[in-house]
Design a protein around this nucleic acid. Sequence first.
DNA 1: AAACTACATTATAATAATTCTAAACTATTG
DNA 2: CAATAGTTTAGAATTATTATAATGTAGTTT
Lengths: 142, 142
Amino acid sequence: MPKNCNFIEKLREVGLRPTKQRIKMCELLYSREKTFHFTINDLVKMISEQMNEKISLATVYNTVHAFEKKGYLKEISIDSHKSYFDTNTSAHHHFFDEDTHELIDCEESDIDKINIRKNITGKKINSVEVLVRIASDNQNQK
Amino acid sequence: MPKNCNFIEKLREVGLRPTKQRIKMCELLYSREKTFHFTINDLVKMISEQMNEKISLATVYNTVHAFEKKGYLKEISIDSHKSYFDTNTSAHHHFFDEDTHELIDCEESDIDKINIRKNITGKKINSVEVLVRIASDNQNQK
DNA sequence: AAACTACATTATAATAATTCTAAACTATTG
DNA sequence: CAATAGTTTAGAATTATTATAATGTAGTTT
Ligand SMILES: [Mn+2]
Ligand SMILES: [Mn+2]
Ligand SMILES: [Zn+2]
Ligand SMILES: [Zn+2]
Protein backbone atom coordinates (compact mmCIF):
# COMPACT_ATOMS: atom_id res chain seq x y z
CA MET A 1 0.00 0.00 0.00
CA PRO A 2 1.34 3.49 -0.79
CA LYS A 3 2.51 6.10 1.68
CA ASN A 4 0.67 9.35 1.29
CA CYS A 5 -1.82 7.85 -0.89
CA ASN A 6 -4.58 8.25 -3.18
CA PHE A 7 -6.68 5.58 -1.58
CA ILE A 8 -9.44 6.26 -4.05
CA GLU A 9 -7.27 5.14 -6.92
CA LYS A 10 -5.92 2.19 -5.02
CA LEU A 11 -9.43 0.97 -4.30
CA ARG A 12 -10.48 1.46 -7.91
CA GLU A 13 -7.48 -0.45 -9.16
CA VAL A 14 -8.70 -3.63 -7.53
CA GLY A 15 -12.33 -3.04 -8.40
CA LEU A 16 -13.55 -1.80 -5.04
CA ARG A 17 -15.75 1.28 -5.12
CA PRO A 18 -14.16 4.07 -3.12
CA THR A 19 -16.92 4.67 -0.62
CA LYS A 20 -16.60 7.00 2.34
CA GLN A 21 -16.37 4.05 4.71
CA ARG A 22 -13.65 2.26 2.76
CA ILE A 23 -11.57 5.40 2.42
CA LYS A 24 -11.78 6.02 6.15
CA MET A 25 -10.67 2.50 6.87
CA CYS A 26 -7.80 2.86 4.43
CA GLU A 27 -6.69 5.97 6.23
CA LEU A 28 -6.69 4.19 9.57
CA LEU A 29 -4.92 1.15 8.26
CA TYR A 30 -2.43 2.50 5.74
CA SER A 31 -1.34 5.97 6.81
CA ARG A 32 1.13 4.74 9.39
CA GLU A 33 4.83 4.41 8.85
CA LYS A 34 4.87 0.83 10.11
CA THR A 35 2.57 -2.07 9.47
CA PHE A 36 0.67 -3.41 12.46
CA HIS A 37 -1.60 -6.13 13.77
CA PHE A 38 -5.16 -5.70 14.93
CA THR A 39 -8.35 -7.52 15.76
CA ILE A 40 -11.77 -6.54 14.45
CA ASN A 41 -12.48 -5.25 17.92
CA ASP A 42 -9.37 -3.07 17.91
CA LEU A 43 -10.39 -1.66 14.57
CA VAL A 44 -13.93 -0.89 15.67
CA LYS A 45 -12.49 1.00 18.65
CA MET A 46 -10.06 2.89 16.41
CA ILE A 47 -12.91 3.90 14.15
CA SER A 48 -15.19 5.11 16.92
CA GLU A 49 -12.36 6.97 18.69
CA GLN A 50 -10.62 8.59 15.76
CA MET A 51 -13.53 9.18 13.43
CA ASN A 52 -16.56 11.37 13.93
CA GLU A 53 -18.95 9.24 11.92
CA LYS A 54 -20.02 5.74 12.74
CA ILE A 55 -19.56 2.72 10.50
CA SER A 56 -21.85 -0.24 10.86
CA LEU A 57 -20.24 -3.32 12.33
CA ALA A 58 -21.33 -5.33 9.30
CA THR A 59 -19.45 -2.89 7.09
CA VAL A 60 -16.31 -3.26 9.16
CA TYR A 61 -16.46 -7.01 8.68
CA ASN A 62 -17.36 -6.68 5.00
CA THR A 63 -14.59 -4.23 4.35
CA VAL A 64 -11.92 -6.14 6.22
CA HIS A 65 -12.80 -9.24 4.27
CA ALA A 66 -12.93 -7.31 0.99
CA PHE A 67 -9.46 -5.94 1.73
CA GLU A 68 -8.26 -9.40 2.67
CA LYS A 69 -9.53 -10.86 -0.59
CA LYS A 70 -7.80 -8.12 -2.55
CA GLY A 71 -4.54 -8.67 -0.74
CA TYR A 72 -4.61 -5.49 1.32
CA LEU A 73 -4.83 -7.40 4.57
CA LYS A 74 -3.72 -10.76 5.80
CA GLU A 75 -5.40 -12.86 8.44
CA ILE A 76 -3.15 -14.40 11.09
CA SER A 77 -4.39 -17.40 13.05
CA ILE A 78 -2.50 -17.84 16.23
CA ASP A 79 -4.98 -17.82 19.03
CA SER A 80 -8.18 -19.72 18.40
CA HIS A 81 -10.03 -17.31 20.63
CA LYS A 82 -9.01 -14.19 18.70
CA SER A 83 -8.60 -13.41 15.02
CA TYR A 84 -5.74 -11.09 14.09
CA PHE A 85 -5.23 -9.15 10.89
CA ASP A 86 -1.94 -7.82 9.61
CA THR A 87 -1.36 -4.83 7.36
CA ASN A 88 1.89 -6.50 6.36
CA THR A 89 0.59 -8.89 3.72
CA SER A 90 3.87 -10.54 2.81
CA ALA A 91 4.75 -13.98 4.16
CA HIS A 92 6.71 -13.34 7.35
CA HIS A 93 7.41 -14.84 10.73
CA HIS A 94 6.01 -13.84 14.10
CA PHE A 95 6.72 -13.87 17.76
CA PHE A 96 3.63 -14.32 19.88
CA ASP A 97 3.86 -13.17 23.47
CA GLU A 98 1.74 -15.60 25.45
CA ASP A 99 1.62 -13.24 28.44
CA THR A 100 0.34 -10.16 26.65
CA HIS A 101 -1.16 -11.84 23.57
CA GLU A 102 0.90 -9.44 21.49
CA LEU A 103 2.01 -10.31 17.97
CA ILE A 104 5.45 -9.11 16.93
CA ASP A 105 6.84 -9.22 13.42
CA CYS A 106 10.06 -11.06 12.91
CA GLU A 107 12.66 -9.46 10.71
CA GLU A 108 13.80 -11.33 7.62
CA SER A 109 17.27 -11.53 9.11
CA ASP A 110 16.16 -13.05 12.41
CA ILE A 111 15.52 -16.51 10.99
CA ASP A 112 17.42 -18.40 8.32
CA LYS A 113 15.64 -19.44 5.18
CA ILE A 114 13.73 -22.63 5.87
CA ASN A 115 14.31 -25.63 3.71
CA ILE A 116 11.41 -28.07 3.36
CA ARG A 117 12.74 -31.47 2.44
CA LYS A 118 9.38 -33.18 2.11
CA ASN A 119 7.58 -32.98 -1.18
CA ILE A 120 3.85 -33.63 -1.35
CA THR A 121 2.93 -34.82 -4.82
CA GLY A 122 0.59 -32.57 -6.77
CA LYS A 123 0.92 -29.82 -4.19
CA LYS A 124 2.93 -26.64 -4.28
CA ILE A 125 4.08 -24.64 -1.30
CA ASN A 126 2.22 -21.35 -0.88
CA SER A 127 4.00 -20.07 2.19
CA VAL A 128 6.30 -21.09 5.00
CA GLU A 129 5.85 -19.19 8.20
CA VAL A 130 7.32 -19.63 11.64
CA LEU A 131 5.58 -18.89 14.88
CA VAL A 132 7.78 -18.39 17.91
CA ARG A 133 5.84 -18.47 21.14
CA ILE A 134 7.50 -16.50 23.90
CA ALA A 135 6.72 -15.77 27.54
CA SER A 136 8.36 -14.01 30.44
CA ASP A 137 11.47 -15.75 31.63
CA ASN A 138 10.98 -16.35 35.34
CA GLN A 139 14.17 -18.38 35.54
CA ASN A 140 16.01 -15.14 35.01
CA GLN A 141 14.96 -13.26 38.13
CA LYS A 142 17.76 -12.91 40.67
CA MET B 1 -0.09 -41.50 25.87
CA PRO B 2 0.35 -45.25 26.21
CA LYS B 3 -0.64 -47.92 23.71
CA ASN B 4 -2.96 -50.51 25.16
CA CYS B 5 -3.53 -48.51 28.18
CA ASN B 6 -4.96 -48.25 31.50
CA PHE B 7 -6.67 -44.97 30.88
CA ILE B 8 -8.08 -45.02 34.38
CA GLU B 9 -4.62 -44.84 35.87
CA LYS B 10 -3.47 -42.25 33.38
CA LEU B 11 -6.36 -40.01 34.27
CA ARG B 12 -5.79 -40.46 37.99
CA GLU B 13 -2.12 -39.63 37.63
CA VAL B 14 -2.91 -36.09 36.57
CA GLY B 15 -5.77 -35.67 39.00
CA LEU B 16 -8.69 -36.21 36.66
CA ARG B 17 -11.40 -38.50 37.90
CA PRO B 18 -11.80 -41.46 35.58
CA THR B 19 -15.41 -41.08 34.66
CA LYS B 20 -17.21 -43.12 32.04
CA GLN B 21 -17.22 -40.16 29.63
CA ARG B 22 -13.52 -39.40 30.03
CA ILE B 23 -12.53 -43.01 29.56
CA LYS B 24 -14.60 -43.24 26.39
CA MET B 25 -12.97 -40.13 25.04
CA CYS B 26 -9.54 -41.50 25.91
CA GLU B 27 -10.35 -44.64 23.97
CA LEU B 28 -11.34 -42.67 20.92
CA LEU B 29 -8.36 -40.38 21.11
CA TYR B 30 -5.53 -42.61 22.29
CA SER B 31 -6.13 -46.14 21.03
CA ARG B 32 -4.85 -45.45 17.55
CA GLU B 33 -1.40 -46.26 16.32
CA LYS B 34 -0.87 -42.77 14.97
CA THR B 35 -1.66 -39.40 16.42
CA PHE B 36 -4.22 -37.33 14.58
CA HIS B 37 -5.92 -33.96 14.28
CA PHE B 38 -9.57 -33.24 14.91
CA THR B 39 -12.10 -30.52 15.53
CA ILE B 40 -14.68 -30.58 18.30
CA ASN B 41 -17.21 -31.31 15.60
CA ASP B 42 -15.23 -34.30 14.34
CA LEU B 43 -15.01 -35.61 17.87
CA VAL B 44 -18.71 -35.22 18.53
CA LYS B 45 -19.39 -37.19 15.34
CA MET B 46 -16.91 -39.89 16.33
CA ILE B 47 -18.62 -40.20 19.69
CA SER B 48 -22.12 -40.46 18.29
CA GLU B 49 -21.07 -42.90 15.57
CA GLN B 50 -18.74 -45.19 17.46
CA MET B 51 -20.30 -45.14 20.90
CA ASN B 52 -23.67 -46.39 22.00
CA GLU B 53 -24.12 -43.82 24.75
CA LYS B 54 -24.34 -40.10 24.29
CA ILE B 55 -22.06 -37.54 25.85
CA SER B 56 -23.34 -34.04 26.41
CA LEU B 57 -21.77 -31.39 24.22
CA ALA B 58 -20.75 -29.42 27.29
CA THR B 59 -18.87 -32.47 28.55
CA VAL B 60 -17.06 -32.84 25.26
CA TYR B 61 -15.86 -29.25 25.52
CA ASN B 62 -15.05 -29.59 29.23
CA THR B 63 -13.14 -32.81 28.69
CA VAL B 64 -11.20 -31.61 25.69
CA HIS B 65 -10.12 -28.55 27.65
CA ALA B 66 -9.32 -30.63 30.72
CA PHE B 67 -7.14 -32.89 28.56
CA GLU B 68 -5.53 -29.86 26.96
CA LYS B 69 -4.69 -28.37 30.34
CA LYS B 70 -3.15 -31.63 31.48
CA GLY B 71 -1.06 -31.90 28.34
CA TYR B 72 -3.01 -34.74 26.73
CA LEU B 73 -4.11 -32.57 23.83
CA LYS B 74 -2.73 -29.60 22.02
CA GLU B 75 -4.73 -26.89 20.31
CA ILE B 76 -3.58 -25.87 16.84
CA SER B 77 -4.62 -22.49 15.47
CA ILE B 78 -4.34 -22.39 11.75
CA ASP B 79 -7.70 -21.44 10.42
CA SER B 80 -9.53 -18.76 12.33
CA HIS B 81 -12.81 -20.34 11.37
CA LYS B 82 -12.00 -23.76 12.80
CA SER B 83 -10.22 -24.91 15.92
CA TYR B 84 -8.08 -28.02 15.58
CA PHE B 85 -6.78 -30.28 18.30
CA ASP B 86 -3.84 -32.61 18.02
CA THR B 87 -3.20 -35.81 19.93
CA ASN B 88 0.49 -35.25 19.25
CA THR B 89 1.28 -32.80 22.02
CA SER B 90 4.94 -32.24 21.23
CA ALA B 91 6.08 -29.13 19.39
CA HIS B 92 6.09 -30.05 15.73
CA HIS B 93 5.59 -28.57 12.31
CA HIS B 94 2.59 -28.87 10.00
CA PHE B 95 1.53 -28.77 6.43
CA PHE B 96 -1.89 -27.27 5.90
CA ASP B 97 -3.67 -28.16 2.72
CA GLU B 98 -5.62 -25.09 1.74
CA ASP B 99 -7.79 -27.08 -0.69
CA THR B 100 -8.96 -29.77 1.69
CA HIS B 101 -8.33 -27.95 5.00
CA GLU B 102 -6.36 -30.98 6.09
CA LEU B 103 -3.58 -30.74 8.64
CA ILE B 104 -0.58 -33.00 8.08
CA ASP B 105 2.22 -33.56 10.55
CA CYS B 106 5.71 -32.80 9.41
CA GLU B 107 8.43 -35.25 10.30
CA GLU B 108 11.32 -34.03 12.40
CA SER B 109 13.64 -34.74 9.51
CA ASP B 110 11.69 -32.73 6.96
CA ILE B 111 12.79 -29.36 8.26
CA ASP B 112 16.15 -28.31 9.64
CA LYS B 113 16.38 -27.02 13.17
CA ILE B 114 15.41 -23.36 13.18
CA ASN B 115 17.77 -20.85 14.62
CA ILE B 116 16.22 -17.69 16.05
CA ARG B 117 18.76 -14.89 16.01
CA LYS B 118 16.59 -12.31 17.69
CA ASN B 119 16.51 -12.22 21.45
CA ILE B 120 13.65 -10.51 23.25
CA THR B 121 14.79 -9.37 26.68
CA GLY B 122 13.05 -10.94 29.63
CA LYS B 123 11.34 -13.45 27.40
CA LYS B 124 12.12 -17.08 26.81
CA ILE B 125 11.14 -19.12 23.78
CA ASN B 126 8.41 -21.66 24.50
CA SER B 127 8.13 -23.20 21.07
CA VAL B 128 9.10 -22.71 17.46
CA GLU B 129 6.71 -24.16 14.94
CA VAL B 130 6.52 -23.92 11.19
CA LEU B 131 3.35 -23.88 9.15
CA VAL B 132 3.70 -24.77 5.49
CA ARG B 133 0.62 -23.89 3.49
CA ILE B 134 0.18 -26.05 0.44
CA ALA B 135 -2.34 -26.24 -2.38
CA SER B 136 -2.80 -28.19 -5.57
CA ASP B 137 -0.21 -27.36 -8.18
CA ASN B 138 -2.14 -26.41 -11.28
CA GLN B 139 1.04 -25.41 -13.10
CA ASN B 140 1.89 -29.07 -13.20
CA GLN B 141 -0.96 -30.36 -15.31
CA LYS B 142 0.16 -31.36 -18.78
C1' DA C 1 -21.49 -50.52 53.13
C1' DA C 2 -23.92 -46.19 54.29
C1' DA C 3 -22.86 -41.46 54.40
C1' DC C 4 -20.23 -37.67 52.98
C1' DT C 5 -17.96 -34.65 49.98
C1' DA C 6 -15.87 -32.88 46.07
C1' DC C 7 -15.99 -33.06 41.52
C1' DA C 8 -18.41 -34.15 37.00
C1' DT C 9 -22.29 -34.46 33.85
C1' DT C 10 -26.32 -32.81 31.90
C1' DA C 11 -29.92 -30.04 29.60
C1' DT C 12 -30.64 -25.77 28.85
C1' DA C 13 -29.84 -20.81 28.84
C1' DA C 14 -26.64 -17.22 27.93
C1' DT C 15 -23.01 -15.03 25.48
C1' DA C 16 -19.99 -13.71 21.80
C1' DA C 17 -18.43 -13.52 17.25
C1' DT C 18 -19.73 -13.49 12.74
C1' DT C 19 -22.87 -13.64 8.84
C1' DC C 20 -27.37 -12.89 6.66
C1' DT C 21 -31.34 -10.10 5.16
C1' DA C 22 -33.69 -6.81 2.87
C1' DA C 23 -34.45 -2.07 2.59
C1' DA C 24 -32.24 2.38 1.80
C1' DC C 25 -28.29 4.58 -0.29
C1' DT C 26 -24.49 5.86 -3.55
C1' DA C 27 -20.89 5.54 -7.09
C1' DT C 28 -20.48 4.81 -11.73
C1' DT C 29 -22.18 4.47 -16.60
C1' DG C 30 -24.57 5.97 -20.48
C1' DC D 1 -29.86 13.07 -15.06
C1' DA D 2 -31.63 8.43 -15.26
C1' DA D 3 -30.49 3.60 -14.77
C1' DT D 4 -27.86 0.05 -12.59
C1' DA D 5 -24.89 -2.45 -9.98
C1' DG D 6 -22.67 -2.49 -5.88
C1' DT D 7 -22.69 -0.86 -0.83
C1' DT D 8 -24.22 0.32 3.72
C1' DT D 9 -27.14 -0.34 7.40
C1' DA D 10 -29.87 -1.99 11.50
C1' DG D 11 -31.29 -5.67 13.11
C1' DA D 12 -32.23 -10.67 12.87
C1' DA D 13 -30.14 -15.13 12.47
C1' DT D 14 -26.61 -18.42 13.00
C1' DT D 15 -22.73 -20.66 15.04
C1' DA D 16 -19.42 -21.78 18.38
C1' DT D 17 -18.53 -21.72 22.98
C1' DT D 18 -19.31 -21.00 27.93
C1' DA D 19 -22.25 -20.48 32.10
C1' DT D 20 -25.88 -22.21 35.21
C1' DA D 21 -27.82 -24.98 38.42
C1' DA D 22 -29.81 -29.32 39.29
C1' DT D 23 -28.59 -34.14 39.39
C1' DG D 24 -25.24 -37.85 39.48
C1' DT D 25 -20.94 -40.24 40.68
C1' DA D 26 -16.08 -41.32 42.37
C1' DG D 27 -13.32 -41.44 46.20
C1' DT D 28 -13.12 -41.08 51.07
C1' DT D 29 -14.68 -41.40 55.85
C1' DT D 30 -17.16 -43.46 59.27
MN1 LIG E 1 -11.83 -14.51 7.01
MN1 LIG F 1 -8.94 -23.62 24.41
ZN1 LIG G 1 2.90 -9.51 10.98
ZN1 LIG H 1 0.12 -32.29 14.48
